[in-house]
Amino acid sequence: MEILMSIIIGILFTSATYLMLSKSILRIIIGTGLLSHGIHLLLLTMGGLKKGASPLLGQHASSYSDPLPQALILTAIVISFGVTSFFLVLAYRTYQELGTDNLEKLRGKKEHE
């Protein structure tokens, strides 16, 4: 199971890298989304995918799955959610002000503003 997950995470990382190397800002933001998905799945996989009950004490199971990675992922999800929404609004403002979503055209000029 872990091997299958590793391959999927690898594919997610590859597509994220490919998208982040493109020119359009939106494609880059989609790339960061895929990257964070890959990272969260990696945290889950690295904690171990052994079978066990969900971490609720009411279940009275003999073994539970590791609760720590789930808490870490939850934290990482809200952080990347905040950063992504900021980035999206920033991209929107940049498009309004500078009139382009092409990163190649977002270069500084010699005579700084």
Binding site: T32, G47, E97, L106
Partner: peptide
């Protein structure tokens, strides 16, 4: 304008490095 332009680059670099940080913490864990 210059701030908007440079913040886009700054955020992108830091999102990637934060992502790598969490990945590293995952491996270490």
């Amino acid at each position: 304008k210059v701030q908007l332009r440079e913040t886009v680059k700054y955020i992108l670099v830091n999102i990637i490095s934060s992502g790598l940080f969490v990945t590293t913490v995952g491996y270490l864990y």
